[in-house]
């Protein structure tokens, strides 16, 4: 009889893990709470650093998951997970019981809810947006303010909900810097007359081709990078956003009037992941992402036998890293099943 593995979450990590397992001849049940697969890929228009369309990646992932070996259960929640002698038993919201030999948790991340950082005025002031809002505008092909006009001056705030003691997130989400650079370039492409200012603490360009993109943003696109954290945002009578920020290189406080403020929301443990943690008795680590058994060689393993992790449910990762991590998870599962 064929072995059976359940994968929770059909984002980048879940799709890749399911595809890999299926190619190894294992039956997979892929459970996704949303109607659509692809996770955050659906919300992003173009990907850093090469600015390819996110659909290309999604198409690649789905090419391997559209086969008979993978049963997709979309729009379904999980109600119960019991890990016993006979394997892992999962009960879905439809009351169906699935029994599998192993479980991969690929619940991904949630974007930091920017309204929690109230001083930036998200959902209070009309012209404060998040990086995700901006991606939607890019997909529509039009960047516009609340009143429908095009912005002339745009400010981008890095580290919203990352490296911030006050919101309880001490870690770096590591993708927001390069996202800001990518989006700054895209804004300048769409609106050649506009001015873009990025307010950063550190530029963490630690990925393939990131530094080159950062250089391009400065040299080719004239994006202004100001080192300093925005302390607060306000709104004037003309709906312009007034920000207070310190330029820590020049050593002076700044007050700026902007048409649009974009917040680079960080990554947090997903709400769905927390639910699964509760159901399966999995531990959270220091940063509330799932705790892995070893940082170096156990980043796919959980403390529960037969349950494995794939992707950003363990730490912030980019797509390249997520896919590698998911392949590693598939390898771990296959060797686990062979030695069972």
């Amino acid at each position: 009889m064929n072995k059976h593995v359940i994968v929770i979450g059909a984002g980048v990590a879940g799709l890749e893990a399911a595809g890999q397992l299926s190619r190894a001849g294992i039956d997979v049940s892929l459970i996704e709470r949303e109607k659509m697969t692809g996770g955050h890929l659906n919300d992003w228009f173009k990907l850093f650093p090469d600015r390819r369309d996110s659909r290309e990646v999604k198409d690649y992932l789905e090419k391997f998951t559209n086969n008979d070996g993978i049963k997709l259960l979309a729009g379904i929640e999980i109600e119960k997970i019991i890990n016993g002698r006979g394997g892992v038993k999962v009960t879905t919201s439809e009351g169906k019981e699935l029994i599998a030999d192993a479980l991969i948790v690929a619940t991904g991340f949630d974007l930091f809810r920017s309204s929690r950082k109230e001083e930036y005025g998200y959902e209070i002031y009309d012209n404060v947006y998040t990086s995700a809002d901006l991606e939607k505008m890019f997909r529509k092909g039009k960047i516009s303010l609340h009143n429908g006009k095009s912005p002339e001056t745009i400010g981008i705030v890095h580290c919203v909900g990352s490296r911030d003691e006050k919101v309880g997130n001490l870690y770096c989400s590591k993708l927001c810097c390069v996202t800001a650079v990518k989006q700054a370039i895209e804004i300048r492409e769409h609106l050649p007359e506009s001015k873009v200012f990025c307010f950063y603490m550190d530029m963490r360009m630690g990925g393939a081709m990131y530094e080159e993109l950062y250089r391009e943003a400065q040299e080719k696109w004239g994006v202004n990078f100001i080192r300093g954290k925005v302390s607060e945002a306000g709104e004037d009578i003309n709906n312009k956003v007034i920000i207070k920020v310190e330029d820590t290189l020049a050593g002076r406080p700044l007050k700026m009037e902007l048409d649009m403020l974009v917040l680079m929301a960080g990554m947090e443990m997903s709400e769905g992941g927390r639910k699964i943690a509760g159901l399966a008795g999995l531990n959270a680590g220091e940063n509330r992402f799932f705790a892995v058994t070893d940082q170096h060689y156990g980043s796919n393993r959980s403390s529960v036998k037969g349950i494995f992790f794939a992707g950003t449910c363990t730490a912030p990762m980019n797509i390249t890293e997520t896919i590698s991590h998911s392949r590693a998870a598939a390898t771990e599962v296959i060797s686990y099943l062979n030695n069972k």
Binding site: E118, E119, G121, I124, Y125, S231, E232, A233, G234, E235
Partner: peptide
């Protein structure tokens, strides 16, 4: 309250 603009508004 300037850091919680919801209140001052």
């Amino acid at each position: 309250s300037h850091l919680t603009p919801g209140i001052k508004n």
